[in-house]
Design a protein around this nucleic acid. Sequence first.
RNA 1: CCAGAUUAUCGGUCGAUCGCAUGCUCUAAUAAGAGUAUGAGGAAAGUCCGGGCAGCAAAGGGAAGGGCAGUCGCUAACGGCGACCGGGCGUGAGCCUAGGGAAAGUGCCACAGAGACAAUACCGCCUGGAUCAACCCAGGUAAGGGUGAAAAGAGCGGGGUAAGAGCCCGCAGUAUUCCGCAGUGAUACGGAAUUGGAGGUAAACCCUGCCUGCUGCAAGGAGAUGGAUUCUCAAGGCCUAAAGCCUUAAGCGUCCCGCUCGUAAGGAUUCAUCAUUUAAUCCGCUUGAUCUUGAAGGCAACUUCAAGGCUAGAUAGAUGAUCGACUAGAACAGAACCCGGCUUACGGAUAAUCUGGCUUU
RNA 2: GCGGAUGUGGCGGAAUGGUAGACGCGCUAGCUUCAGGAGCUAGUGGGCUUUAUGCUCGUGGAGGUUCAAGUCCUCUCAUCCGCA
Length: 114
Amino acid sequence: MLARNNRFHGYSSLNWAYRHGETIRDHKLSLKYANNQRRHTYRVAVVISRKVNKSAVVRNRIRRRIYEVLRSNSDAIKGNYDLIFSVYGDELADISSKELEVMVKGLLKRANII
RNA sequence: CCAGAUUAUCGGUCGAUCGCAUGCUCUAAUAAGAGUAUGAGGAAAGUCCGGGCAGCAAAGGGAAGGGCAGUCGCUAACGGCGACCGGGCGUGAGCCUAGGGAAAGUGCCACAGAGACAAUACCGCCUGGAUCAACCCAGGUAAGGGUGAAAAGAGCGGGGUAAGAGCCCGCAGUAUUCCGCAGUGAUACGGAAUUGGAGGUAAACCCUGCCUGCUGCAAGGAGAUGGAUUCUCAAGGCCUAAAGCCUUAAGCGUCCCGCUCGUAAGGAUUCAUCAUUUAAUCCGCUUGAUCUUGAAGGCAACUUCAAGGCUAGAUAGAUGAUCGACUAGAACAGAACCCGGCUUACGGAUAAUCUGGCUUU
RNA sequence: GCGGAUGUGGCGGAAUGGUAGACGCGCUAGCUUCAGGAGCUAGUGGGCUUUAUGCUCGUGGAGGUUCAAGUCCUCUCAUCCGCA
């Protein structure tokens, strides 16, 4: 789990990132990122629709795994970015942790964040 | 040993590394760091019921609407639970059961059938016209056949008749009432009297009895002080007058009433000063119809008493990630104001009590 | 979290407790045309086969009430909507 500083708070801050961000899309995952000058650290949110999987347990597990990949690589992240990951498939709950790490880091590299 | 029935408990553990939230303490000084303690469920789920709590002026009575339905109990309450009664299923342990009222009234009963409920004679049987027979016509007949889910709807034997029929009788049986006895009671057992009567459906309207206001934590609340305007401010008494107190009336009480009861001080708008800046933040928020153990009462649901405990409180949402071992890439699954139930999902493990069958002693 | 609605052929959408599938779109065949479209006529309605006046399944699913359920009752599943 990420620290409180590296998570979003409130509703309008997410809306700001949705309006000003750029999107990179992968097969089962997409990243919307925006450089926020008013902050001192990066922020991350993971968005999983109820249509992806109806079980709250599975959705919680996907969010926690993506948070964990970012936490273990937090030193590599440059700049004060707002990051929003959107999930499009429930396979992310079952794939191995190395595959997930490759997927998430691939998106970050294409966005030129790490 | 095999096959079952019921109930209860558990539902990953250990180790290593890296993390998160809250409380407390210290450093520190408004932003962090260190230490320490605690951190999802039996269903947290579905949101199907019931309550607490909050707001709507929320006491009372009534109407409409809604709900419930064997009896007795339990409970804060319930459509829940327990015990018992009746009915059904099973060899049995046990399981299932919306189980008031159809002579209060209304509606409906398709198709088929002659006739579908104060309705009916199609075939058959019998009598007559009418006579040897057939056909036909009129009448009698609900025993037999046919139609249908259901046909005057409960059988057997005898009498009776033109033919028949509870038309009459006996037995069996049904229903109702009364008595005795057991029980708080539903009811059970025994006895007596009456009963020959036109169905089903109330998870159709309805009747009877009982219960019930609406909205939901996204409820609801959140600065202080002073001033002005306006709405409702009636009558009488005490008093020189004001203030204050008392009595009565009107008004209001979100469907109706205003007999009872409540209600007198508040509401709305606006100005000034400081405080505050917006889907944020704080309160509500977790000590409660609470949990554990023991004792007592009760068949039980449950209740009472004593001692001890504090056991999630997040807010884009904490309780996790990776690796290894166990014996197997553990099932269903994530608190969101809080409780009591119900229902549904669930790989497996353990324990207790009981039933049937087989074998051995 | 709280509240509410819907579910019927391939699609849309009717049906008072009484033969399920009206009607429209579609699909198939025929007529018309040089050809296609449009139009007109008839048929088909899920599955199976013997191609029929056949058998069987069927109103999201499972039970119940009833002689009889798409309709009434209970539970359940899926989809959709509203509330700061």
